[in-house]
Simulated assay, not measured.
Amino acid sequence: MYGCTCLRDYCEDFFNECNKYVADSLKISTNKPNGIKQVIRMSGLVPINKQNFRLPNISTKNFTNVIMSEFTKHLRDVISSLAEDERNSFRDGMATLICIQLLSQTFKKSNPNPLELFLNASIQPERLEIIKRLLNFIKNIKGDRNIPESIWFELLVLDSSDNLIKTIPMEIVSFEVYLRCAAKVVPALAQHSDFINRLSPHFDDAITQNQFSIDLKNITFLLSFLRNQSSDDANPDLKTIRSIIDSSIPLRNKIKEYMSKLDVTINEFNSIRDIFILSIESSVLFHVNRKEFLLKLLTNDKNLRSVDFYIQWFLAFMTPDKNKPSMFDDDEFKELLKVWTTCVAHRPDLIVKIIKEINVLISAIGDHPCSSHFIEHMVDLCFQL
């Protein structure tokens, strides 16, 4: 224990001294790229491991952020200055500094994600070797616990010939997190054929292995992303991402499974409607029949449904407005209306309460092509009571 404490103190002392002197020395350096390179190589010699690592102190964080910021500014010159016998120590140093940034989470406050550094074209020859060491470094410190920013690592090593992705523990993420990462990584690595060829299988595998959160919020976000195609002509990489997602068979199956088991509440009606409308031009809900879904929602447990349930169902799915067009043609509307009235007509208490709210329903249906049919249908229903 004493040895570990001494070694930990040594590591902190090293970075404390670096923070005091190295950053200032770089400011007056006549060959800044070489100075940055040597500092990075020197950092790789620090013996950090699981026993002596703890959350970096302020000096360590400051030094690391300064060096990485300077390296980013002079990245091309630093990389081009590397001699063959300097590459190993340089890679070790990069792994050390990026690991400190990731584990201290400093980048989430003010600095960019340090892994974005690997999107720079100049560092591509070193990318996979540095990431391999970085993954080993993190594993030595954190053991088998989750790796920070795991989806970044997964995409950054897709073109690895030694299957680095298998060394990354799976972490459940939202579609928003995945797309935010993919939107940056794909344009940077699209020139690598192995990366592009593996992008679609990787997405499908992630779906199959339940790596993505599947819920109404995430489905809505995904469909909104797929629908927003205005920038695709200027950004073909976004078009590639959309194509991969929209054509994913595992995604269609997973959403079908989720929707079939969903116990929908009144508060979720508008979310369901938004999803159905957003999916009209997408294949993501290919296996979900909107009409059948809503009919099942209407008829299941109909003896237990409240009047509010039927009114809100009607307002959500049968009444269009300028922002939410109708989901159904006239024949489908009439079929759904018939089932809706059948559900409420067998309970006198419900139909009386709904008739009291008829003005709300008529106002909501507005100038729908079937508005006259709805009014006539409700009048007929009243005479049948």
Rank of each mutant, 00 (worst) to 15 (best):
E154D: 09
D162T: 07
N146I: 02
E129P: 12
K166V: 03
L179A: 04
V173Y: 09
N136R: 02
P201I: 07
I172K: 13
I196M: 02
F153C: 11
P169D: 01
D159L: 03
P201E: 09
K142D: 06
V185T: 07
F195W: 08
V185W: 05
L155D: 05
N136I: 01
P169Y: 08
W152N: 10
R198L: 02
C181Q: 07
L134Q: 02
L164S: 06
K132D: 15
R145F: 09
Q124F: 12
E126H: 13
K142H: 06
D159E: 12
K139Q: 10
E149W: 05
L134Y: 09
V157C: 01
D162A: 03
N197V: 02
R180I: 03
F153Y: 10
L155V: 01
R127N: 15
D159Y: 01
K132W: 05
L179G: 02
A188V: 00
V185D: 02
Q124T: 01
E129V: 14
L189F: 03
I131L: 15
W152M: 09
M170S: 11
L155S: 00
S174F: 10
S200Y: 13
D144F: 05
N197K: 11
L155H: 03
A182H: 14
E171Y: 04
Y178E: 00
D162K: 05
L155T: 01
L199V: 00
I147M: 11
I131G: 12
L179W: 01
S200V: 13
F137C: 13
L155C: 03
N163C: 00
I123N: 11
I151T: 10
Q191G: 07
V173Q: 08
S160C: 04
H192P: 04
P148A: 03
K132H: 14
M170T: 08
L135D: 05
T167Y: 03
V157W: 10
R180N: 13
I196K: 00
E126A: 13
S193T: 15
S160T: 00
D159Q: 06
N163R: 07
E129R: 15
K166E: 10
S200N: 13
L189G: 02
K184P: 06
I131W: 13
I165W: 00
P148N: 07
G143Q: 01
F153Q: 08
M170Q: 12
L158T: 03
S160A: 09
D194R: 12
I131T: 13
V157Q: 04
R133Y: 12
S193A: 12
L199F: 11
A190H: 10
F175L: 08
M170P: 06
A188E: 07
R180D: 14
P125H: 04
I151V: 11
S161N: 06
W152E: 08
Q191R: 10
D194K: 11
L189C: 03
S174K: 11
E176K: 15
L158Q: 01
S200G: 10
A121T: 14
F195Y: 10
I196W: 00
F175Q: 07
K132F: 07
S200A: 14
E129A: 15
L199M: 05
N197D: 12
R180A: 10
E126G: 08
